[in-house]
């Protein structure tokens, strides 16, 4: 019998779980490294597959971003090449892990129902995995069972609400897009960047520039993430337009910073050749002016962004999505 892979492996220390599609059944393969156990669900018996959203592990993503920013900061601060490579690799690995986790999208728990059983499908942990699973599985089940025509009256038993659970009112229900805190992180990073830059430029505190560079990398990662799937992270309408302006300003800031570094390097090289005093960023007029503009612009951008996010923080479900409360059917 030929099996088609339906999901990636969900790995753990002791093994993995994976879903496969056979000619007439779904196979759950649970591997314990040196043995495999199989559970078969015939397509004719599958009544339903459900997925329910699960909370995002925000603390984990924030921690990963924070540690990666710290690693990038260390990379800029240390002198030894080996240490720079180490911190760079660690920072990149942590940041990419966090980005990958976010890109995979909303977490969910998937369940397969038959007449006599209810099985949690462990490998399906994201809504995107669930979509891929059903895309492959639905035609196979439809070929065996046909297509369902929902007729509530024909249901022999209808689901009852959980005891003591009143239906929600419309105004109680709110959309909670996955990763909604990402725009918030972006504008916090912009504000933090402004503070770090001010510490370097106005306070003549060298480490401030290193911290600012770290925050800039964080901003770029977050912007790329938001630009790919803005709706997933709750950006729409005017807020989306404002995000594009923010992204453009961050890109311009990067270009100006590169120009600044190149100009500074040229001046230092020229000073070395002519034997004059080595110039610093604080001695160059245009750099100071550009820096002050950047600090003011970032502060304004961060505050406005946070304010806009706060004003549009929750969206009540529109009437079109309103659902009647569940009532026991006759």
């Amino acid at each position: 019998m030929r099996y088609t892979r339906l999901s990636r492996k969900k790995r753990s220390i002791f093994g993995s779980v994976q879903l496969w599609l056979g000619d007439d059944h779904l196979l759950v393969v649970r591997s314990m490294r040196f043995t495999e156990e199989y559970r078969r669900f015939h397509l004719r018996d599958i009544q339903a597959i459900t997925a329910t959203e699960q909370p995002q592990l925000i603390w984990m993503e924030v921690a990963l971003f924070a540690i990666s920013a710290l690693a990038f900061l260390m990379m800029l601060e240390v002198e030894a090449i080996a240490a720079r490579i180490f911190f760079g690799v660690v920072g990149a690995a942590l940041a990419s892990t966090a980005v990958y986790d976010l890109v995979r999208g909303q977490r969910c728990r998937c369940r397969l129902l038959t007449e006599v059983s209810s099985e949690v499908l462990d490998p399906i942990t994201r809504v995107s995995d669930f979509d891929r699973l059903t895309t492959q599985l639905e035609p196979a089940i439809a070929a065996v069972q046909g297509v369902l025509t929902v007729d509530a009256a024909s249901m022999p038993v209808f689901a009852q609400p959980a005891p003591g659970t009143p239906p929600l009112r419309q105004e109680d229900r709110v959309e909670t897009p996955a990763g909604k805190y990402i725009p918030l992180l972006l504008y916090f990073a912009i504000l933090a960047n402004a503070i770090a830059y001010a510490a370097g430029l106005l306070g003549r505190f060298n480490e401030g520039f290193g911290a600012a560079a770290s925050f800039w990398f964080t901003e770029v990662i977050l912007c790329v993430l938001l630009a790919f799937q803005p709706r997933r992270f709750g950006l729409k309408g005017p807020m989306l337009g404002f995000f594009y302006v923010t992204a453009a300003l961050i890109a311009i800031d990067g270009i100006v910073t590169i120009a600044l570094i190149v100009d500074l390097m040229q001046r230092i090289a020229e000073a070395g050749r002519s034997g004059t005093k080595t110039p610093t960023i604080w001695n160059i007029e245009w750099m100071m002016t550009a820096g002050k503009i950047a600090i003011a612009g970032r502060s304004l951008l961060g505050v406005v962004g946070l304010l806009a996010l706060w004003l549009g923080r929750d969206r009540v479900v529109p009437a079109s999505e309103e659902v009647p409360p569940s009532q026991p059917q006759p």
Partner: peptide, 17 residues
């Protein structure tokens, strides 16, 4: 959205039900 807890769920139901 679940009418009771407000959590989003996706259900694919087949004739076997």
């Amino acid at each position: 959205l679940c009418p009771y807890c407000g959590k989003r769920s996706w259900t694919r139901v087949f004739p076997a039900i």
